[in-house]
């Protein structure tokens, strides 16, 4: 798996990969889905900046255009990258939960 080169788009990349994990979507559908499951309103410039990088990294791929809209789907490499990110976040969340529990006495 390649090193993450998403820079300022890393959060958007994670959201896009999460969105595409349950099926191919075009840009607007991704924005709506991300807003629904995370409450984050991605703007088009950020969305396409992240899509450009994810495509270059080979983590997503474009499907044939449908009525001016091009759907994207996650690749096997993308699934691996998403798994790694989710595992890292789960580890961070777990540590955060434990440390919060130790604070409950205060």
């Amino acid at each position: 798996m390649r090193k993450n080169e998403s820079g300022r788009f890393s959060d958007a990349s994670f959201l896009i990969l999460s969105s595409l994990a349950n099926g191919a979507k075009h840009g607007y559908a991704m924005m709506e889905d991300i807003l629904a499951f995370s409450g984050t309103q991605l703007e088009p410039g950020t969305l396409y900046g992240a899509i450009t990088r994810l495509e270059k990294q080979g983590w997503i791929e474009a499907l044939p255009t449908e009525d001016r809209r091009r759907p994207y789907r996650i690749t096997a490499e993308g699934v691996m990258a998403l798994r790694k990110q989710v595992a890292t976040l789960e580890q961070v969340a777990s540590v955060g939960r434990k440390r919060l529990a130790s604070l409950e006495g205060f």
Partner: peptide, 13 residues
């Protein structure tokens, strides 16, 4: 590469 789909998105956004 991206203009047409971006325009389609902006029409809905």
């Amino acid at each position: 590469r991206y203009e047409e789909e971006m325009l389609a998105l902006l029409e809905q956004h």
